[in-house]
Simulated scan of single mutants.
Amino acid sequence: MTRPDSALSQNLVPTALAGAIAMAVAMGFGRFSYTPILPGMMTGLGLTPADAGLIASANFVGYLAGAVLAGYGWAAGRERMVSLSALVATTVLLLAMGLTSSIALFSVIRFLAGVASAFTMIFTSAIVLSRGHATGNPHVQSVHFGGVGIGIAVSSLMVFLLPAEGFGLIANWQAAWFGGAVIALVGTVLVAVLLPSGAASGKSTEREKPLVWTRPLFVMTLTYGLFGFGYVITATFLVAMARQGASDHTVEFLAWLITGLSAAISVHLWRRAVPRLGIVGVYLAGLLVEAAGLILVVTLPSPYAPLIGGLLLGLTFIMVTAYGLQIGRALAPQSPRKALAFMTAAFGVGQIVGPLVAGWLAEGSGSFNAPTLVAAAVLLFCAILTGLEMRRIVAAAGA
């Protein structure tokens, strides 16, 4: 008899694939395709780092709003419908990004895209992860969150393959947004075919109990929010940083491609360390590795800096996101959806502040070194705080 953790059981394959595709569309394209497209927008439209940071922050404000709205229980029993609607919205909003050149409209569109990505992440995860948990199959989580990395890698390849001069009246950056919309549409159709209805427990229509804030849950939520600030600076500006020190677009393409490919396998790779370190220990290790990656981005010469930075970013940010949410759910067993929503909201706050601070510091200093070092310092603080509270968190979460 095959053990549950040896491979995906046959009935879970469509569910896991649906989760991966949904995450690729909503996160890989709906959120993170902004990163490889941004340099072209800055060149073609004359956007400053502060402008770019403002547009990015608008997306994260939307993500925060979506996470907060998701925590009120209105979607109980309707998770599948909300997830698919959010994916359709993501497709339309990707298309809309190529139809304007207004910073104000860019910000509005990215705000709405943030709401859509939060809804997809929270409600699709509620369906997919609950089914994996019910069967004791950790591969479901690996495949589900690995979709983000696949989306990032595909978006990088798409942008790289587009002609630099665009298509006549359509600029390169516009074509990239249109291409992303086409890919998102295909992904949405596939998710509609594959995604099952409701959580594995069959109790998705029941409202959860009020969330009880314990010290371990507060610490995890705080570090998770600060992690959002730290990682997003590199996730937003990595390709722009690569373009500053490169003679062609190959390095920026490779930096984001490496980020996506390493992110796609990161949860699976880090899972091998769980028996030795525990989930909380792996979460802590991820914070330290990502902080080290940020420091290397500043200290290594081009072209190695963005490539190493992309590798270490990809190897950690999906894993820290996934395991952070898993720990949060374990710390609130009576209200896991509410815990997931509040942690996602804290994450969103960090992401709002991160691009604004990074854009302001980069515009003032003329490089991204200062914001990158600030991000590294914040991640190190998160690691120290997690280490100090590790025993309490492990005891409370049973992890």
Rank of each mutant, 00 (worst) to 15 (best):
G62D: 00
F119A: 15
I152K: 07
S125H: 00
Y283D: 03
T372M: 14
A395Y: 13
G328T: 05
L169V: 14
L211F: 11
A192V: 02
T135Q: 13
S107E: 03
A383E: 07
G245T: 11
F32G: 03
L361F: 06
A22F: 00
Y34Q: 10
G149W: 11
F123P: 01
E206P: 10
A89H: 02
G366C: 04
L226Q: 04
A246W: 05
P301V: 04
G180E: 04
G73W: 11
E290C: 12
L190I: 11
L195I: 10
R207Q: 15
F106P: 00
E363C: 04
L226I: 09
V374Q: 00
G147T: 04
P14M: 08
G180P: 06
L361V: 06
Y224A: 06
L311Y: 12
I150L: 15
E206D: 15
E363R: 11
V92R: 09
Q174A: 08
L129K: 00
A291T: 06
H268R: 15
G260K: 09
G278A: 01
A175M: 11
G98S: 08
G114P: 05
G73E: 01
M42C: 05
V191T: 08
V289K: 05
M23C: 09
G328E: 04
A376Y: 02
E363V: 07
G309Y: 07
V274E: 04
A50H: 07
S125Y: 06
G228P: 07
L284E: 13
G114S: 09
I258M: 08
V353E: 06
F229I: 10
H268W: 12
F119L: 13
A291R: 06
A7G: 10
L38Q: 11
A246G: 08
Q174W: 06
V239Y: 00
A358R: 08
R272N: 12
F106D: 00
I384R: 03
L269E: 09
A377R: 06
G180Y: 07
R131L: 00
V219D: 02
V92E: 08
A395C: 12
Y72N: 13
